[in-house]
Design a protein around this nucleic acid. Structure first.
Length: 281
DNA sequence: TTCGTCGGATGGCTTACCTCA
DNA sequence: GATGAGGTAAGCCATCCGACG
């Protein structure tokens, strides 16, 4: 366990916590870092700068997330009033972009791969606290701020998936870990898909109901026609070609066209069985 | 206080791609 | 050059579970 303390320049706190809320060099601040066996500068920095793939790959000696505490002068970081103040990182040069800082947050349960891959990232996120106080038995859940969520939503509208560059840019801009951005997009995609599935399901259900109703109506019609047939034998004794009417559309076909276009009529009427039964008997 | 929903996080699996023998 | 094995990254999916109304 190591304890580091710095005064005066929070923008460059410690090697293992160097991804902090962006502060200008003019800002006076007090920064305290608490880590467990954090590594030396040369390792961590290289990892985060993308030396090895996207997310960095350096491993901390311990998986315990570090704690950094920033005590700053009054409102050192401008907070966005709305998402419109933020810019999508891949759309602009980000001159006006602001990064947000968050309160102390407890670490969360992570798999070993996550721990390894994200160790450096974790270290670099600002104002992060470990859950040392309760031995990791519980986890505090991060709740993204409205601004962050709105910004991510906007980003999602632009791209439902992110390339590593976009992910990193977003993470930097929102002061989150790239993994968090990734997870947010994954969950967003999943939930969008789920919503769409529900909509589709609802639509199919309505279709099914409509078809069932139509089927019922046609069955009834067929029954009526059969009844008509038995009650009016004379009607049916006429040559089939003289009266061929589809009861549903109430069109009467002529003698010549009926037989010639029987197959096409079937196709046009959807092959309703009663049509042919009338004309053929 | 309890309960249902939301949403951030995790682990496992699959797929695509790359490297190397 | 073609091919299979092994490694890695990324995405999807099911699930967990804390936060919150």
């Amino acid at each position: 366990m190591e304890l580091a303390l710095s005064l005066g320049d929070p923008s460059k706190p410690f090697s293992f916590l160097d991804k902090t809320a962006k502060l200008s060099s003019k800002d006076l601040g007090f920064c305290m870092g608490l880590g467990n066996g954090f590594k030396s500068q040369e390792n961590g920095d290289d990892a985060f700068e993308g030396k090895n793939s996207t997310d960095g790959d350096e491993k901390r000696v311990s998986s315990d997330p570090p704690l950094q505490l920033d005590l700053l002068p009054f409102s050192p970081v401008p907070r966005p009033q709305s998402s419109s103040q933020l810019r999508l990182p891949w759309l602009t040069d980000n001159r006006d972009a602001v990064s947000m800082d968050f309160g102390i947050r407890k670490g969360s349960r992570r798999g070993k791969k996550e721990v390894e891959v994200e160790a450096v990232e974790t270290e670099r996120t600002s104002t992060r606290a470990s859950d040392d106080d309760d031995n990791g038995s519980t986890r505090k859940k991060l709740r993204l701020s409205k601004e962050q969520s709105a910004f991510l939503e906007e980003s999602f509208k632009e791209h439902s998936t992110l390339n590593p560059k976009q992910k990193l840019a977003l993470a930097k801009q929102l002061n989150l870990r790239p993994r968090q951005i990734e997870v947010w997009f994954q969950n967003r995609r999943a939930r969008t898909k789920l919503k769409q599935t529900e909509v589709d399901c609802e639509y199919l259900k309505r279709c099914c109901e409509t078809l069932a109703e139509e089927n019922k109506r046609l069955q009834k019609e067929l029954q009526e026609l059969r009844a008509l047939k038995t009650s009016q034998p004379f009607y049916m004794q006429l040559p089939a070609t003289t009266l061929t009417m589809c009861p549903s559309c109430e069109r009467v076909a002529t003698a010549s066209t009926t037989n010639a276009s029987a197959s096409t009529a079937d196709a046009k009427t959807g092959g309703y069985p009663f049509f042919s039964s009338i004309s053929n008997t």
